[in-house]
Simulated assay, not measured.
Amino acid sequence: MTKTAFTLAALALAASAVHAQTGNSSNQPGVYGLLGVGQGHLNADCTGVQACDRNATGGKALLGYSFGNGFALEGGYANFGRFHASQGAIGLNARPEALSLGGAYTAALSPDWGLTGRLGVARVRTKIGADVGTLSGSDSESKTQPIVGLAVNYALTPSARIELGVDATRAQYQGEHTNVRMVTLGARMAF
């Protein structure tokens, strides 16, 4: 994960060194896609648990349509990562993932920089797994939840941008819910 982030950052710096001033492509109508990787965080209470890892590597993919005035409609998939906890011979894991549909607005901060806010609904599926010795089992539950996001992006070319963002929603299983968020670094490409 760290190598990927450093590689993307190095590519962005190299591209910006040779980059001429470009117009803000976030205000051009058309289809775009975004792929990002990052770190997810599950806001779970780990009190009394021997080992608990509430951070995991995750990723997201979005497909959007920009209307040309900063507003866009987006659909996407996010995998917030696989979180682990254990107590003696008992191991638990949780894997929240979401299918989302929502709106986005990108404000041009300068010709190259933009700030994007996202608001939508997500069908969040929480997969739970348990291991006790050699026995294992799993279950999942899906709920519709709100999803929000905020990102800053930088234009490398008129059609390619890098984006650093955070997305947040809720994971729920058997009436218990917890907040889950993910910070990602990704590439956005207009088609």
Rank of each mutant, 00 (worst) to 15 (best):
31 V>H: 09
32 Y>W: 12
32 Y>P: 01
33 G>E: 08
33 G>V: 07
35 L>Q: 06
35 L>V: 14
36 G>A: 12
37 V>G: 12
38 G>E: 09
39 Q>W: 09
39 Q>F: 11
39 Q>T: 12
41 H>P: 04
45 D>C: 05
46 C>N: 07
46 C>D: 08
47 T>L: 03
47 T>E: 10
48 G>E: 07
48 G>F: 10
48 G>D: 09
49 V>R: 02
49 V>F: 10
49 V>I: 13
50 Q>R: 13
50 Q>F: 12
52 C>P: 10
52 C>D: 07
53 D>W: 00
53 D>M: 00
55 N>Q: 14
56 A>R: 05
56 A>L: 05
56 A>P: 04
56 A>H: 02
57 T>P: 01
57 T>W: 11
58 G>V: 03
59 G>M: 04
59 G>A: 10
60 K>C: 03
60 K>N: 14
60 K>Q: 14
61 A>R: 00
62 L>Q: 07
63 L>S: 05
63 L>Q: 03
63 L>I: 15
65 Y>G: 01
66 S>P: 00
70 G>M: 11
71 F>S: 10
71 F>G: 07
71 F>C: 07
72 A>L: 04
72 A>I: 00
73 L>S: 03
73 L>T: 00
74 E>D: 11
75 G>S: 12
76 G>V: 09
76 G>Q: 08
78 A>H: 06
78 A>N: 09
79 N>D: 15
80 F>S: 01
82 R>K: 15
83 F>P: 02
83 F>M: 08
84 H>L: 11
84 H>K: 14
84 H>W: 12
85 A>Q: 07
86 S>L: 01
89 A>P: 13
89 A>G: 08
89 A>W: 11
93 N>T: 13
94 A>L: 14
94 A>P: 04
95 R>V: 07
96 P>T: 07
96 P>V: 09
97 E>Y: 13
101 L>K: 10
103 G>Y: 11
104 A>Q: 10
104 A>I: 09
104 A>V: 04
105 Y>M: 04
105 Y>L: 09
107 A>W: 14
109 L>S: 03
110 S>L: 02
110 S>A: 08
111 P>C: 03
112 D>L: 07
113 W>N: 07
114 G>T: 04
115 L>P: 00
115 L>I: 10
115 L>E: 06
116 T>I: 04
116 T>K: 14
116 T>V: 05
118 R>C: 00
119 L>F: 13
119 L>A: 15
120 G>V: 10
120 G>T: 08
122 A>T: 03
122 A>L: 05
124 V>T: 15
124 V>C: 10
124 V>Y: 01
125 R>A: 11
126 T>V: 08
126 T>G: 04
128 I>V: 15
